[in-house]
Amino acid sequence: MIKPLEGVTVVEFAGLGPAPFCGMLLAQMGARVICIGREGAPPPSGPLARGREYVALDLKRGEDIARALDLIASADALIEGFRPGVMERLGLGPEVCHARRASLVYGRMTGWGQTGPLAHTAGHDINYIAISGALHAVGLAGGDPVVPLNLVGDFGGGGMLLAFGVVAAILRARAGGEGCVVDAAMTDGAAMLMSMIYGFQAAGHWQDARGVNLLDGGAPFYRTYRCADDRWIAVGCIEPQFYAAFMKGIGAEDLLDLPQRDRAHWPRLQARIAGVIATRTRDEWAALFAGSDACVTPVLSLAEAPLDAHNTARGAFAKSGDAWAPECAPRFVGYGQAEEVK
C-alpha cells in the first residue's frame, strides 16, 4: 500500500480525542509519529493510538524539556491539543520550537481557537458545534436538537482539518523552508463543514428549522424508516430516476404523479412510504433493493457494520484483539495496480 507521508516525522503530545485522531491519520499515511506522554502514565491505547512510537517524559524537569526539544528539532511537524498557553508555560511554545527548526509546522488543536472571547474557557464538542449552527440544524421537525455523536466538532471539524492543515503547511515549508502555526479550532471547522447548508440557506433553498429540509430528514425520499422488526432502512433517492426506482420497488408508482420536490406533498408521501416499509423486515427490504439504484440500505449497528459484505470486500474494518476497528482511509493505489485489500 502506498504511504504518501513516508519520510515525514511528527511529534505529538499525548491528549484526548481530536489531536490523537490527527496523529493516527498521519501515522496511517506513513508518517513517523513520536508521541510524548506523561512519565508514569500508561501509554495511550485503542484505535486512536495506532502507529505511534511512545516516549514518556516529565515536562516539569529541565532535562526532559531539552529532550523534547531535541525530538522537535528533527521533526517536520508538532501537534498538540492543550488549552492556549499550556505549551508556552512548559517552555515548548511556537517561538521556542521555531528557533530550533525554522521549517517546523506547529499544529494546535483547540475547541475555541487560540484567540477570541472563549479561547481560555472549557468546552466540549457539543459546545463547539452549538455556536457554529451545526447543532441547531440536526433533529426532527418540532423536536430538540440532536447531538450527532462527537463527529462534527472533535473529528470532522477538529482532528481531520488539523491533519489537512498540517500536511498543507508541510508542503509550504518544503517549498519555501519556513514553517508556520496551524490554529485548528473546532468551532471554525464545524462552521466550515456547514458551508453547503449555509449556501443553500443563502439561495433560499433551506429553512432555518430542523427536519423540514432536503437533507435533514424532512424530505420523504431522504430519511430513515422503521421496518416490521423495529430495525431501520435508510432511503436517499434524491434524483428523479432513483426516486422512481424506489417508489416502484415499494409498489407506490401512483405517487409518482405528485411532484417530488413539492413540499406540500411531503407529509402525504412520508406517511404512505412509512406504512409500506413497516410491512417488511429490514433485511427483506435490503434484499429486495439489493443491486438497484433506489438508494436503499440497511441501517447497521456497530456490531453489524464490520460484517457487511461491502465493508468486508473493501477491508474497511480489521480485528484488533477481540474488537473491530476501522481501517485506514482513504486508500492510495498506484496507476494500473489492483487495490490491496487486507
Rank of each mutant, 00 (worst) to 15 (best):
I277H: 00
G107E: 14
L71K: 12
C180D: 13
R89P: 03
S45D: 14
L78K: 10
A203V: 01
T281P: 02
Y222W: 10
L78N: 09
D283K: 01
G7I: 12
G143N: 14
R231I: 00
H205S: 05
L307S: 02
D125P: 04
A66L: 13
Y198P: 01
Q201G: 03
T224W: 13
I126P: 03
R282T: 00
R314W: 00
A173M: 11
F164C: 04
G315I: 01
A141N: 14
C97S: 08
G204Y: 08
R172H: 12
R210N: 08
D70L: 01
F13R: 10
L25N: 06
I131D: 08
C22Y: 09
G93F: 05
A305K: 00
H265Q: 14
G157S: 10
A119I: 08
P43Y: 10
Y54S: 08
S45W: 07
A325H: 03
G113C: 11
A287W: 04
F82P: 01
P298V: 01
C180L: 10
F164P: 00
D188F: 05
L302K: 05
R52L: 06
A56Y: 08
F155E: 06
I34Q: 07
D254V: 07
I131T: 15
M196H: 13
L78W: 11
G139H: 09
